[in-house]
């Protein structure tokens, strides 16, 4: 169990991280998600000991590790650039951390070989970092940390440097390794897909502060505010023109009656593209007309852009590949009132 308690880190007068608190459970796969410059990497470096916090504490299994030097901290960090030692081969890179623990040569050899097996690096022991592919480098960086059996493994943007196909493969591999080793993983990323796909829980950060924490499902379906709603996934927003009671009026004066008014002074109402349907069903109770102005093919599920009287902005919807839609035709669209949220 790692507890971050009101951590603050300043660079000059600028708050990189401000009064940040969070508890992460043992064996959890946790993601820190936020746009670049939101302080997530700084927080990671505070946890790993490379930056000293200006305020607050970090506890690891009830032990205060706030001021421990990186080399004695039971955490390990996987760098975004992997930071493999260029003058050591794969075996020596992985063995480095164990040698520092002054273990017997034989034990080091056994543990390194074991991890090489588990991370699919067999046969590459003698290679040097500049002879490895991106994916292999990443696995070496991962193995180098895992072999130390840290209580917490911190990963700084682990997938950013990989190309799309490799990224998908590594996502699965990372998740498997995390389960296999049962180590707490804290991953920092700016890529929402990555965070949602990998993590058991996600913390969304903005301007050094925690905005929302929850399971991927919670974050996606109930974004706490406009920032999270805009940052996670795609969403159609309708600017507020008039609200009477729970009635929200669109541009064409049609209105919906919201089930919940969760804000004091809402700016707009939002709905996910996949919640706008092409066919009515038992739950749909709002209907509007629109004209298809563009179709963007992705394969399985395509994006369709609609112009409608209810909004000045074009509206994005999703449709399955089997759905035949024709450009410049008018269609009717249906939504359930429960899928609208005020922001």
């Amino acid at each position: 169990m790692i507890e971050v308690k009101s951590i603050t880190k300043k660079f000059g007068n600028l708050f990189a991280v401000k009064d940040f608190s969070i508890g992460i459970n043992h064996g959890e796969f946790f993601a820190l998600l936020g746009p670049s410059g939101c302080g997530k990497t700084t927080l990671l470096r505070v946890i790993s000991g490379f930056e000293l916090a200006d305020g607050g504490n970090i506890f690891l299994d009830k032990e205060n590790i706030t001021n421990l030097k990186p080399f004695v901290r039971p955490t390990n960090l996987m760098f975004q650039s992997y930071a493999l030692f260029p003058h050591y081969n794969v075996f020596k890179n992985i063995a480095y951390g164990l040698e520092r623990e002054k273990l017997e040569k034989q034990e080091i050899s056994i543990r390194v070989n074991e991890i090489i097996c588990k991370t699919n690096l067999t046969g590459l022991e003698e290679r040097y970092p500049d002879q490895l592919s991106g994916g292999q480098k990443q696995r070496v960086a991962l193995a180098r940390c895992l072999v130390k059996k840290p209580k917490v493994l911190l990963l700084d943007e682990p997938l950013t440097a990989l190309d799309k196909n490799l990224k998908e493969k590594m996502k699965i591999e990372l998740k498997n390794l995390q389960k296999q080793f049962g180590i707490t993983f804290i991953i920092v990323t700016h890529d929402q897909d990555e965070a949602l796909a990998l993590a058991d829980r996600v913390a969304v950060m903005n301007e050094g502060q925690l905005v929302q924490v929850g399971t991927p499902k919670e974050i996606y379906s109930k974004p706490k505010n406009l920032f999270v709603a805009e940052f996670i996934g795609k969403m159609n927003f309708f600017q507020k023109l008039k609200i009477e009671g729970n009635n929200f009026y669109f541009q064409d004066n049609s209105f919906i009656t919201l089930l919940e008014n969760n804000f004091e002074n809402p700016q707009c109402v939002g709905i996910r593209p996949e919640d706008i349907l092409l066919k009515a069903n038992g739950n749909t109770n709002y209907k509007f007309e629109g004209k298809i102005i563009d179709i963007i093919y992705h394969g399985q599920e395509n994006e369709v852009i609609i112009n409608s009287k209810i909004s000045e902005e074009p509206i994005l919807i999703k449709c399955h590949k089997n759905q035949e839609l024709i450009l410049n035709t008018n269609i009717s669209l249906y939504c359930a009132l429960s899928s609208f949220r005020l922001y």
């Binding site: 080399f71 760098f79 930071a83 623990e101």
Partner: peptide, 9 residues
Amino acid sequence: EASYDLGGK
């Protein structure tokens, strides 16, 4: 930093 992290003083 990686070396510090892996226990190298």
